[in-house]
Amino acid sequence: MDIYLPIAEVAVNAPLIVALGALVGFISGMFGIGGGFLMTPLLVFFGVPAPVAVGSMANHVAASSMSSVIAYSRRRAVDLRMGAVLATGGVIGAYAGVEIFRLLRLLGQADLVVSVSYLVFLSVIGGLMLTESLGAILRRRRGEPQPPHRDRRPVWLYGLPLKMRFPRSRLYISVIPPLLLGAFVGMLSAIMGVGGGFILVPAMVYLLRMPAGMVVGTSLLQIIITTALTGVLQAGRNQTVDIVLATLLLVGGVMGAQLGARASARFRAEELRAILALIVLLVGLRMGLGLFFRPEEPFILMSGMGG
């Protein structure tokens, strides 16, 4: 059953897209990430033009994060204050990102920046996560004690001005690192069509030293606010949001996300991190590989913006 996407101007197989949404939703709910880093490349692979995939993903990520954040907030696992600080940065970053993406499209280099961003960010994050989580798994298998939880937080977190209390996370740190982190993730969200959870979650754990229980719910809150803004900006500035595509993905995505959130309770945290790290790494390498091989068809028609 093919369905025509009005903005992407291509016909896609509807059940396939719904299944894709469910699969990514499952992963998203399981790991507490938006899943955009996985969905955007898959959509491009199935023939959706990259700018439309990036633009529409914002809607999909916002909706699926919305459905999971409510579950987390019921468990009181959301630090609203930290979420607000991150989101403030995210709003600035998203605005900058949409403008940068617009410029890149005009220059014809959007593909390159998207591929390179995927290659660099996903490989680095995936590699780091994999090393860390495999180490933790091995230590547990061998019965070695986990390294003592380093409660010494980096000096720069304390040396910076504008300190703020985050009672839920039991933190008293400067707002500058979370603001910058939020801005950076917001920009990536606009350029890569991702929520940014794959960067946000590790950064909150390892840099901000937030308690693990608070990280996922809080990152989802930041992602909702940032992607909601990105989605509106992408539609307003670039006309690349396809609501039919986003809705199809949502139908599968919300169901998958709920199932994923329940499934996550059955795994240990480090096992979840290891699986996620592998997925992240594979997607990053796959997206980046195209840069190194001679393309079969060297010429590419650029959709839209024909003038």
């Binding site: 009005p6 903005i7 101007e9 914002a58 809607n59 999909h60 916002a62 909706a63 699926s64 994060s65 919305m66 459905s67 999971s68 409510i70 579950a71 909702i224 909601a228 989605g231 509106v232 900006l233 992408q234 539609a235 307003g236 500035r237 006309q239 949001v241 609501i243 039919v244 986003a246 809705t247 949502l250 919300v254 169901m255 996300a257 709920q258």
Partner: peptide, 28 residues
């Protein structure tokens, strides 16, 4: 939808996002 997205992009964007968030809320 295509005409709306190109003629009134901001309204379209706001409406799409409101719809997406509502679906997420309803699903949860």
């Amino acid at each position: 939808l295509y005409v709306l997205a190109h003629d009134r992009p901001w309204s379209y964007g706001l409406a799409s996002m409101a719809f997406a968030l509502a679906v997420g809320w309803a699903a949860s």
